[in-house]
Nucleic acid binder design. Structure first.
Lengths: 199, 199
DNA sequence: CGCGTAGCTTACCATCAGTAGGTTACTTGC
DNA sequence: GCAAGTAACCTACTGATGGTAAGCTACGCG
């Protein structure tokens, strides 16, 4: 089997095993077994257990960014951009099930490089939000935008976990809740006087 | 040295080592060494590596709850309760430095019991928020309050990490940012018509 | 055919969570 | 004072697991 295919297969199995057992309890031997290959192959391709986790995260993060930024691009007003981004975010999370949630929470534990990868992912999300919103800000208030974006990303992450335990909640409802909670406050950052004409 | 004292000392050292190395890389041997005691003592008192982590988390969580609920109780209006709680939260986080941040992020990785402990901590915070706010809600809209509280807790956690990297940010500023972002939206949950007379 | 190399293996090492069993020293009861 | 019990503590080990060394097989290419 060619390397690229094998790598994809390994990452898929790894994501599953990490999700099932948790990062610490997951053993490289088990992953290798399930792939139907010997352990050194994993090390040949990913370098280390942490490297394998990082690869899984990186792939998921790339896809998340693609999905959310596409959604935001397709919308026109800032409000709709944010809402569309949120919906696609909760959609993505739901589609990826616990695997995604676990990857996020697990990664921080590992070491600098996996933690860095997770951070980079959030950074992309916060950058996406703050840069999108900053387009509509009259003054260079982007300074305040960055921490606000942190709050949004963190809040959504948390809410996504909550939604996992309340499966009746739809991505649209989750997004709507976040919008109700923060949109007014967001507007005061984007545009200090609430002028409905702009958004 | 009596057991209670030794346990406190062990937890203090463990918190530090976990923060320095991360949970996975921290070794029980090193913790034992730094305490100046042999490894079986750690197992005698805490049962396992995870048990030690859980003990650290539980202690920090109890203190956090004490601090924030005291602050909220001391304030009178819902807005001031929330603001006071937020300030004391960011104060607490700052005082506990990275140790706290790491404990939060590390714990999820370990296993059900540590993850459960972390969840219990957040549950306490979200319960505190939603029950406090529900006191002022005219209708039993507590259903919506729970996910909103999740968003707040998650957003604050994330913002706290951000503040760690922007040390010029004071707890008051962080709390104020959160208030600006979410208070208006919160009011629409607490009281559908913004009647200043109540709060 | 000979050579390089991609894909893969067995067999091993080192580290570290966790344990068995023993020692010291202090308290308690007579 | 002294035996018994126990709390605090130790040395020395096991088992599991992350990670590695060295080699094997098969294919492409001159």
């Amino acid at each position: 089997m060619p390397r690229a295919d094998r790598e994809r297969q390994m990452m898929s199995v790894a994501e599953q095993v990490f999700a099932e057992r948790g990062y610490v309890a997951a053993s490289m031997d088990e992953i290798a077994d399930r792939v139907g290959v010997s352990k050194p192959m994993l090390y040949e391709y990913f370098g280390s257990k942490e490297g394998l986790l990082v690869a899984c995260i990186r792939q998921a993060r790339a896809e998340l960014l693609r999905v959310t930024s596409n959604a935001a691009l397709a919308a026109t007003s800032p409000e709709d951009k944010l809402r569309a981004g949120l919906i696609s975010y909760f959609d993505f999370i739901r589609a990826h099930g616990q695997a995604w949630a676990l990857l996020r929470t697990e990664a921080a534990v590992v070491g600098p490089s996996a933690a860095g990868e997770i951070e980079a992912g959030r950074q992309q999300q916060t950058d996406l939000i703050s840069s999108t919103m900053a387009l509509y800000a009259p003054t260079p208030s982007t300074l305040d935008m960055a921490p606000a974006a942190e709050v949004i990303v963190g809040g959504c992450e948390r809410l996504a976990l909550w939604c996992d335990q309340h499966p009746e909640t739809t991505p649209e409802q989750a997004a709507e809740l976040v919008m109700r909670l923060i949109w007014f406050g967001m507007r005061t950052l984007v545009d200090d006087q609430p002028s409905p004409g702009r958004g």
